[in-house]
């Protein structure tokens, strides 16, 4: 439990780490209407693709530093020597990132959804989808950033982004499902299922990778 507290403290005191991604997300959501003719129909049509891509990009930015800083200053070394389970440490790190960055972004996303689509039920239904998908994005990008730990985050993104394409397709389908009032809960369970697999496997693989980096 101490680990979660410490990681929380570390992230919270580093405002560029959590405030930066949230602000970038907000800026993207504000910037995109400027690129199209301002009629409500067009905005509504492209809103969700921008929303998913923005969430994806911002999670990419947020995880850039997730292991690098701890690796460079030796904290990861200390974690690996200590009796803590390294994959638990990694799992809680990702959880904290989700709590501090993913959660506000999901809330912001649904607020913007309300602002642009202007239907209550839409933004209520999109909120849990955003919550789950940001958590999945964080996990997968952390894996990528662990792989390319000292080699810059571009490489990590290059190798993990293709793996997220199926998720983007599902997210596209979810929007259609909400739109036509089809099987929304089915999609939610599908996403939850994916999340529950990823949440177990990614920290395990990542801890193996991190140990290899520490050698």
């Amino acid at each position: 439990m101490n680990i979660i507290r410490f990681e929380f403290l570390k992230l919270l005191k580093k405002s560029r780490g959590w405030l930066g991604p949230i602000l970038v997300f907000t800026l993207i959501m504000i910037a995109y209407p400027l690129t199209v003719e301002l009629t409500d129909i067009e905005l509504g049509q492209s809103f969700f693709s921008i929303l998913w891509i923005a969430a994806l990009l911002v999670m990419m930015l947020a995880t850039e530093d997730i292991f690098l800083e701890d690796f460079n200053d030796g904290s990861l070394e200390q974690y690996a020597i200590s009796q803590n389970n390294l994959s638990f440490v990694i799992g809680s790190k990702i959880f904290i990132y989700w709590l501090v960055i993913g959660l506000p972004i999901s809330a912001l996303g649904s607020i913007f959804c309300f602002g642009i689509i202007n239907q209550h039920n839409f933004s209520f239904q999109i909120f849990p989808v955003l919550l789950i998908s940001t958590y999945i994005f964080l996990n997968v990008f952390s894996f990528g950033n662990a792989l390319s730990l000292t080699k810059g985050s571009i490489l990590g993104i290059l190798v993990t982004l293709p793996m997220l394409l199926p998720l983007l397709i599902i997210l596209g389908k979810v929007v259609i499902a909400i739109n036509f009032d089809l099987n929304y809960s089915g999609f939610l369970f599908l996403l939850l299922g994916i999340l529950s697999i990823i949440i177990v496997i990614i920290p395990m693989i990542t801890s193996y990778i991190i140990r290899a980096h520490l050698e």
């Binding site: 200053d73 030796g74 904290s75 020597i81």
Partner: peptide, 30 residues
């Protein structure tokens, strides 16, 4: 942290090892 290419190593302690390395494990911004 590192596995030897060859040879055996056994450590007989059930407490954590205290390791002070080159990296000081301090957070610069705290």
């Amino acid at each position: 942290l590192t596995k030897p290419t060859k040879g055996d190593l056994t450590t007989n302690t059930n407490k954590e090892i205290c390791f002070i390395g080159h990296k000081n494990a301090l957070k610069q911004y705290l």
